[in-house]
């Protein structure tokens, strides 16, 4: 029995790390631009299709398709922000909302037209490999995905802390007026933030392509999970996103085991409500008004 719970907990943590990467991207975009990317889940699914397509058409391994997804999604995010997103920066919230929802619908529709609605799965020998730790069996693909996701989050965190552009992004998220006053190229900074945010989502998608069947309609689940994690972990807090991801992954798994597999989301939403009631800035969020 302990084996069952341990296995479920580990699985939950591993998928939680990937969720955390998705949430990190959402967090970055919100932190720097105060914009909610309602199309975030769609970007993840786009990354999944890049992962699937790279395998199906070119036989590329996951490591390559992840790099491909990162580059493609960064470019897409950067261009989208420079050409369209920045024009909406000064418009009211509801206009931005419409923009991102439209983007979401366009992406979903485009993917459905290009790939069809049927599930696409990557079937390879690697799908079955496991690492044996004592009596525990850890799915190798999930572990690789989790470690890669954690690695990307760490690299991003280091970049934000120690590089000048990273600090400029932090500066823009902390005080946009100050940023403009000292001549930071805000258009460019916003576009980089969106590019990185989309890249995070795309990488996460390519990492989970071997784990799940890819369909164009998974996006809503990912957007919702990202939101829950961002709110639970703390807005604009990178360590918060990591913590939130792990917690939600764990909670989903344990909920399924302790109650019923259909209760997965129940507990996550319950946790969300609890956080909103008792600690609205999130577990690691700062009290400072954002």
């Amino acid at each position: 029995m302990i084996e069952l719970y341990a296995g479920v907990a580990i699985n939950g943590l591993m998928i939680g790390a990937v969720y955390a990467l998705v949430a990190t991207g959402l967090n970055l975009i919100f932190g720097v631009m105060r914009v909610v990317n309602f199309a975030h889940g769609e970007i993840v699914v786009g990354g999944m299709y890049i992962g699937y397509g790279a395998w199906a058409l070119l036989g590329l391994p996951t490591s390559v398709s992840v790099a491909l997804a990162a580059i493609v999604m960064f470019g897409f995010g950067y261009c989208f922000q420079r050409l369209i997103g920045n024009q909406f920066a000064n418009r009211p919230q509801h206009a931005q909302f419409v923009l991102y929802i439209s983007l979401a619908l366009i992406i979903t529709g485009g993917l459905a037209m290009a790939f069809g609605p049927d599930p696409r799965s990557i079937q390879s020998a690697a799908s079955f490999s496991v690492y044996k730790i004592g009596s525990l069996r850890v799915d190798a693909t999930r572990l690789q995905a989790a470690l890669s996701a954690a690695g990307v989050i760490l690299a991003l965190w280091l970049w934000l802390r120690f590089s000048l552009t990273g600090k400029a992004l932090q500066a823009a998220s902390q005080n946009i007026i100050g940023g403009r006053a000292i001549g930071i190229r805000i258009d460019h900074v916003f576009a980089i933030a969106t590019g990185i945010g989309f890249a995070c989502a795309g990488i996460a998608g390519a990492l989970i392509a071997p784990l799940y069947d890819t369909t164009p309609y998974l996006s809503a689940d990912f957007t919702l999970i990202a939101f829950i994690i961002v709110i639970v972990g703390g807005l604009a807090s990178l360590p918060g996103a990591m913590l939130g991801g792990l917690i939600i992954g764990l909670v989903e798994g344990l909920a399924a085991i302790l109650f019923d597999p259909s209760a997965k989301s129940l507990l996550s939403y319950g946790l969300l409500i609890a956080i909103l009631l008792f600690r609205p800035m999130g577990l690691l969020g700062k009290r400072r008004a954002l």
Partner: peptide
């Protein structure tokens, strides 16, 4: 998309 928990429960 993921039936690992259901199968784990069955195995248990």
């Amino acid at each position: 998309r993921d039936l690992s928990i259901e199968v784990a429960k069955a195995k248990a």
